[in-house]
Nucleic acid binder design. Structure first.
Length: 459
RNA sequence: GGGCCCAUAGCUCAGUUGGAUAGAGCGUCGGACUACGAAUCCGAAGGCCGCAGGUUCGAAUCCUGCUGGGCCCGCCA
């Protein structure tokens, strides 16, 4: 099972989520093509303090929108984004009553707000990206069904829990105002599996930690029979890798975690700051609407996942050949054009294939035949970027072949034997390109739009 | 202070169980369409593969140290 994105249902997705979405989706595709049965899952963090902040923000905005009700002030800690007004309006339209005290309505408000955001922001963006999940898994159901306790009980049985006074973090500058509570906490002994400290399952106030919910979630994954767990996380969660792997191992499973470095959004050479709480950030949707799904997908896979990515918004919006996706798609369209021109069905003729003797033809055949190997290797190493590089190299090879022989050894010629063989070669190549593009979730057009007229460019 | 990731051409990056002369794109310069799509192609220039050691017949690749950059280091979620 591949778990990815898992964006909080408290706001729109940003560009970093987009990278995780593409990496996760393509990893799942790769495993699928490599013969695995693969499930995609999205974990919804719909429990905890943040969703109350969201609910409160929605109420505050609702009192602004509806005249005649006492105003509820927006806390500085509340979500400040403009989208909260949309949620508030939708809540009012659905009959929400902002004159009631927050404590009475916060639970239905929370439920409404997270569901609305999930449906109208997150799922719509995923739709634009062409990503479908097999399951959206709600953290709240874990709490409601007391699954945390069940998971903790399992760890108890295995003797992997204890009550400990945790040492303060080493080397960090402590806030002098903060009082250190030295009280024993129930922990899971992740140190036995290579973590550098044991991790608390419950807070001093008795509530379970976020980590405890994650333990329960992964226990649930294992209980459902998944044998190979893969999580795709942003590098900012790097500190959680050890403990999560440790606890999954403790429960008898195995977890692989793919970390991808964060995306620096750039525009006109200036860094764009992304913050979910602040009102000013660039959403994934804006990016998808300007650059399109195909280009955005390829852009995210143009670098290895563990390299930080500078995403130049201006460049991504350009619809010319500086965008690699056009190069790749053009190659596919060119193959299609040749096959159209040939006007015959590609035919496998072992004898005629002997006519393919040019070194470039042998090279192309090798590349086509290498596709399953490449996919297997990319799936094995969980490195989706390899597919992009395969495509670029393969198409470059074809363009070179095409241009070199366009005056001497054309695909379509008077020689029926060579023509049969070469038409088949082009057909097979196009199929290979289409397959690789399908793995990336990128379209393989048979025609490209005509080039735009020159001269109306703004400098 | 500690952990993870990164450092390869002017710029952005590939190079994956260690293998021959380290590759591509962009950019620069110079070329190629009377015929299958020139959104393409060909050529040139451009490298102490961050630094210093080590392992090896052989290192961009593995080990150690150093330098520089990114992310992280709460009983938050």
């Amino acid at each position: 099972m591949v778990e990815f994105v898992s964006a909080n249902p408290t706001g729109p997705m940003h560009v970093g989520h987009g990278r995780g979405a593409v990496i996760g989706d393509v990893i799942a595709n790769l495993l699928d093509w490599a013969g695995y049965e693969v499930a995609r899952e999205f974990y919804i963090n719909d429990a905890g303090g943040q969703v109350w902040r969201l609910a409160h923000a929605v109420l505050a905005r609702a009192t602004e929108l509806k005249p005649g009700v006492p105003r509820v002030a927006l806390d500085p800690e509340d979500y400040q984004g403009e989208y909260v007004r949309d949620v508030a309006q939708a809540w009012l339209d659905a009959g929400g009553d902002p004159s009631r005290p927050f404590d009475e309505i916060r639970e239905p408000l929370r439920a409404f707000a997270t569901a609305w955001i999930l449906q109208n922001l997150i799922e719509q963006d995923l739709e634009l990206f062409g990503i479908r999940f097999d399951k959206f898994f709600s953290e709240k159901t874990l709490h409601d069904e007391r699954r945390l306790e069940a998971a903790v009980a399992l760890l108890d049985e295995k003797g992997l829990t204890a009550h400990e006074i945790l040492p303060p973090p080493k080397g960090m500058e402590r806030d002098p105002d903060e009082e250190l509570v030295e009280k024993p906490l129930k922990v899971v002994k992740t140190t036995r599996f290579g973590d550098d400290r044991d991790r608390p399952l419950y807070k001093t106030n008795g509530e379970p930690t976020y980590f405890a919910a994650d333990v329960a979630y992964h226990f649930d994954k294992l209980s459902r029979g998944y044998t190979r767990l893969i999580n795709v996380w942003g590098a900012d969660h790097g500190g959680y890798v050890q403990r999560m792997k440790a606890v999954v191992q403790a429960m008898g499973g195995e977890l692989e975690i793919i970390l991808f470095q964060l995306v620096n959004l750039m525009k006109d050479g200036q860094p764009f700051r992304m913050s979910k709480r602040a009102a000013n950030f660039v959403t994934l949707r804006e990016l998808l609407e300007t650059a399109g799904s195909d280009a955005t997908r390829v852009f995210f896979l143009l670098r290895r996942g563990d390299m930080a990515l500078d995403f130049d918004v201006g460049l991504a919006q350009k619809r010319d050949n500086s965008n690699p996706v056009f190069y790749v798609q053009y190659g596919h369209a060119r193959c299609s054009a040749i096959l159209r021109k040939a006007g015959v069905d590609p035919r496998w003729d072992p004898e005629a294939m002997q006519a393919l003797q040019l070194p470039e033809e042998i090279d192309l055949i090798k590349r086509i035949l290498a596709l399953p190997e490449m996919i297997a290797a990319a799936a094995q190493s969980l490195e989706p970027h390899r597919v992009v590089f395969y495509l670029q190299e393969t198409i470059a090879s074809f363009h070179g072949y095409y241009t070199k022989y366009k005056k001497t050894e054309r695909v379509i010629s008077d020689d029926p034997r060579k023509t049969t063989a070469r038409v088949y070669l082009v057909w097979a190549l196009r199929q290979a390109l289409a397959n690789a593009l399908a793995v990336l979730g990128v379209s393989a057009p048979d025609r490209m739009e005509a080039p735009e007229a020159e001269g109306d460019e703004v400098a």
